[in-house]
């Protein structure tokens, strides 16, 4: 096990930031920690890294208890913090070289690692730039390069895509997949469910410091009753028609807002077909119709009763 956290409790005064949180990260996986802002993701990461004191719980990294003095363990960890942490006076190259040098004393080896990291995040054209001359996305990439240049076995990324343009965001997500292919275990925190769905092999959803669900994205979606969501764009439905739609086989709910009829149903093969039949039978004219599989947002919504997005 790469990370094992058991019953972690962390309080800030009266606020319980982590409430008996447990999690396991296995070697080679991309582990997603998904939760809204303020749910305790950063707090959990800081506890795992032994930066924060906590009230209760056990933390092991690479099967050893984690302490501030676990230098051998730390050597194998790369961390990309939520806040950009670079020296404003040093150039892109110097920043990466400085942080890499805290892990790799050998100069020749380090030069190669730094060059690779620069290439990896695509900052070749900016090596002599100071951070203030970089755009938000490039700055994030520099922040990532500083965290991973020493080729760690475990990489923890805390919301690396916040306030990043779509181009940089894709580059970052692809990069994470590439690091994983090269053998690194990844812990990825985010409040964007699309990203987590896109890259993570296993996901833990947390809210208010508590774990509320975990598993692969398929497993998570199986946990909830909604299997399919069909949206029909149409005008002027009568209340009778709406309640008739709600009574179709497999349908859990039918909601109408004046222009869209949203029908949620359990899993099944013929849901779309039966809705189409129903429309024909009732003589309902519609513009578009589409079917969606549930998202992690639906999972979150069903378990907590609120939306994941802020």
């Amino acid at each position: 096990m790469v990370i094992r956290v058991k019953n972690l409790v962390k309080r800030y005064g009266n606020l319980v930031a982590l409430d008996h949180l447990s999690l396991d990260v296995k070697e080679g996986e991309i582990f997603g920690l998904l939760g809204p802002n303020g749910s305790g993701k950063t707090t959990a990461i800081n506890c795992i890294l032994s930066l924060l004191k906590f009230d209760k719980g056990d933390i092991e990294v690479f099967n050893k208890p984690m302490t501030p003095e676990s230098y051998d363990t730390k050597r194998d960890i790369g961390i990309v913090m939520q806040n950009v942490a670079v020296y404003k006076e040093l150039t892109v190259y110097e920043n990466i070289d400085y942080f890499c040098g805290l892990y790799v004393p050998d100069k020749v080896k380090r030069k190669q690692l730094v060059d690779e990291a620069i290439q990896f995040v695509g900052l070749e054209d900016y090596v002599k730039f100071q951070p203030k001359k970089l755009s938000g996305g490039l700055l994030r990439r520099l922040n990532i390069a500083c965290g991973i240049a020493h080729k760690p076995k475990l990489i923890i990324l805390d919301e690396p895509t916040v306030a990043v343009d779509p181009q940089s965001r894709n580059k970052i997500l692809e990069g994470i997949l590439e690091l994983n292919r090269q053998g690194a275990t990844i812990v990825y925190t985010s409040h964007y469910m699309e990203e987590v769905e896109q890259i993570c092999s296993r996901i833990l959803i947390i809210d208010k410091g508590k774990a509320i669900a975990s598993g692969t994205k398929e497993e998570l979606k199986n946990m909830i009753t909604i299997g399919e969501k069909i949206t029909l764009q149409t005008y002027g439905l009568t209340p009778e028609q709406i309640s008739a739609a709600g009574n179709l086989p497999n349908v859990l709910s039918a909601e109408y807002n004046g222009s869209n009829l949203v029908i949620k149903s359990t899993k099944g093969k013929n849901n779309l077909e039966s809705v189409l039949d129903f429309a024909k039978q009732e003589g309902i004219q519609f513009g578009t119709i589409y079917s969606e599989l549930p998202t992690l947002n639906d999972v979150f919504l069903e378990i907590t009763g609120k939306e994941l997005r802020d």
Partner: peptide, 10 residues
């Protein structure tokens, strides 16, 4: 955050 990064280093 820079200090946090140094605290995490070995």
């Amino acid at each position: 955050s820079i200090a946090a990064r140094i605290n995490i280093a070995p």
